[in-house]
Amino acid sequence: MTQPLVEVSDLTVTFQGTPPVHAVNGVSFTLAQGEVLGILGESGSGKSVTLKTLLRLLPERRTRIGGKVAVEGRDVLALEGRALADHRGGVVSMIFQDPGLALDPVYTIGRQIAETVIRHEGVSRSTAMARALEMLELVRIPSAKRRLSNYPHEMSGGMRQRAMIALALACKPKLLLADEPTTALDATVQIQILLLLRELQREMGMGVIFVTHDIGVAVEVSDKLAVMYAGSFVETGSVAEIIRDARHPYSQGLLAANLVGAEPGALLKAIPGAPPALHAPPVGCAFAPRCELAGPRCGADPLPLWQARGDRWARCVAAAEAAVPSHAEP
């Protein structure tokens, strides 16, 4: 019995304010060593908030976090001081959508990577610089030696993203969190970064949680997928299971909106409406107001679950009722 790398159970995150925002409402999942989980959701679904909780990056004073978050068996929510600093960047690190904001504009790339290594491993400056060079080569930055002394603004978008990945991986973290790291990139650069991440993940055996709104991107990098809506996972499964046999109407709608198998020029099967504002925790199914299969039974709390295996499930009344496993259904 091996311990999972990440164990999140019944995570809730509330931002206090007037009105409060219930950003995450009861998220549970586990991630094994070396596994890649894609979290798919639209803006405001709580996917980034979930990610930031794993690094304790949310503003402490106005955030209420409930539930349990453990990485390598250590309770992340209880970390303090030195232990928290070691956790951030040492055990878990993160890459962001905009490397321009994550990299410090006044230090060279080499210096930034070296500082991180020194802080976490206490090695000498020359060792740290050697590691920085090694990292830039690892992320396939051409003429890496010269790039060490570049400032972030001297690099192109794709290069900066590679530099940020190098920085994130410098201390060999066990878990990498990726928050839409390719969204701002051009298509031909995006695929380079995705392939690089996939390769590095395999080489270093990291666990990765990859948050995105783009199904295509999620499919390229993930082993497992979780579809998130209104602060909850509504469906999880392997990538193939979700792409070919989505059970939750929201997942189906998202697939249709991503033009999976759409007929050119025809009207799309679009989900009407917009996501709820989450000023109160949702009761029953949060998607019901936009769902064509919705009925009075969708107000049940807790909602019945359709479940095939431990991590292949959909939280939907209609899916649970149509329990006959049919692949013909769209």
Partner: peptide, 9 residues
């Protein structure tokens, strides 16, 4: 006309 659109926001 899809008038049911985004009335929840």
């Amino acid at each position: 006309a899809q008038t049911d659109i985004e009335t929840l926001a």
